[in-house]
Simulated scan of single mutants.
Amino acid sequence: MDWYICEKTEDEYLNRTAGIKAREDLDVIFKQCGMKMINLVVGEDTRTDAGIIRKIKGHIATKKYWEEKLACVHEGDTIYIQFPVRNHTVFLASVLKKLVQKNIRVVLFIHDLEYMRHIKNKSIPFKKKKRMELEEVSVLKNATNIVVHNHQMKKLMHEALGIPLEKMIELDIFDYLIGKEGEKIQERGKRKPGYSCIIAGNLDKQKSAYVYELPKDIAFDLYGPNYTGQAGGNICYHGSFPPAELPYELEGNFGLVWDGISVDTCAGVYGEYLKVNNPHKTSLYLASGIPVFIWKEAALAEFVEQERVGITISSLYEIKDIFEKLTEDEYADMLQHAKLISKRLTSGFYTKQAIEKAMK
């Protein structure tokens, strides 16, 4: 029997409110693959400001909750878990270790790894580093298989964490389910007069500082929450939309996959993280049938080049020259390949491919 963990707050279960797009898509694909769901309700985490004794009791209570919910899983079964878990506890590794000892296969699907994001950060407090090791690294080491974002993440996890290469499966890119109206997006073909770049995501200045230093000679279409800059001129701010609606709202010719504090290169903690992770916005753009600009050193740059769905760049200042030299035929070719990848992303192709590999 194949099982999957579905973690939502009680409000999300009762009112079907929107959760995290990537997690929700995996839940849908797991169900499509015939897996049985185990519901874990995500409660309010009251441990943050608690004393040490209360924190330990909280972690123990969460451990027991996991054990109760996993009691239905038996020898020979496989359980798929999205990671990091929302019901987190420093004792999760011991829970998974017991499952594996019972000949139950544990497959982790990685969304984000805080430890990997801060791996080069020498200033990180010792206490925080130990917490990340307990809640992330120890869990990874006790899984049967780990579905990682890409080859670069696989390589770093092997070299830095000692995770055996044979345990890891490369996802390639996150799927992005759209729904029954997905065919409409395939009709995208007309471009705006001239070329423009789309930036979608959290536009908070601390997270995406580069957004507030954009070149003045390129048109940008911005989508997302927490934008506090001055729109107008070359910048058009469209507001924020739910993930399921966003593909139908995007206007522009290229989606920008960039992060960090600078327009010259992807710098800072978030910029460096692009070297190993798969930004979900890449999937958003391509699922919408839109080619991308992506940082040349990003882990997904190789995928973009191989699939001919965009252009790799070192600096945002390169875009103007690219726009001036780009021909209609060249853009049409990228657009056509983006549409092909869109069909894969919107059908769950890459997730299902990873599941097939995990089943072998």
Rank of each mutant, 00 (worst) to 15 (best):
C72F: 11
M132N: 10
M132L: 15
L92W: 01
M132Q: 14
T78W: 03
Q82N: 07
L70T: 07
Y115T: 11
E67Q: 14
I110E: 13
C72W: 06
K69Q: 15
I79D: 00
K97G: 03
M116D: 08
F83R: 04
P84G: 12
K128I: 11
F83A: 05
E68Q: 09
C72N: 07
H88L: 09
N103I: 01
I124D: 09
D112A: 06
H74A: 14
Y80E: 03
Q101L: 13
K98C: 08
R131F: 12
V90Y: 02
L96E: 04
H111R: 03
I79K: 01
R131P: 02
V73P: 03
V90P: 07
Q101P: 04
I110F: 12
W66F: 12
H88G: 09
L92P: 01
S94I: 00
Q82C: 01
F91M: 03
K130R: 12
I124G: 02
L96A: 04
V107I: 15
H74G: 10
K129V: 12
L70D: 04
K127D: 08
I124H: 11
V85T: 15
A93I: 05
E75S: 15
C72R: 11
Y80D: 04
F126A: 14
K130N: 06
L92G: 00
F83Q: 05
K128M: 11
K102S: 05
F126G: 07
K130C: 11
T78K: 07
C72D: 12
L113E: 01
K98P: 04
L96P: 08
V106Y: 00
V73M: 04
V100C: 02
M132A: 08
A71S: 15
R105G: 06
F83L: 05
D77Q: 01
K122L: 12
S94R: 07
A71L: 10
T78N: 04
R131S: 07
K98R: 15
E114N: 13
K130M: 14
V73T: 05
Q82R: 06
V107P: 05
E68N: 09
P125L: 08
L113V: 06
I104M: 05
V100T: 10
P84E: 09
R86V: 07
P84F: 12
R131V: 10
H88T: 13
F126T: 13
N87D: 06
R117F: 00
K98V: 09
H74V: 13
N103M: 06
I81L: 12
R105C: 09
R117S: 01
K129P: 08
K122Q: 12
V100W: 03
K102H: 09
H74Y: 06
S94L: 01
D112M: 08
K129H: 12
V73R: 03
K120F: 11
K98A: 14
K69T: 05
P84C: 13
K120H: 13
L108P: 00
L70P: 00
K102C: 02
N87G: 10
L70Y: 05
V100Q: 04
A93D: 10
L113D: 01
M132R: 09
G76A: 04
G76C: 04
V73Y: 12
F83I: 04
L96H: 03
E114M: 13
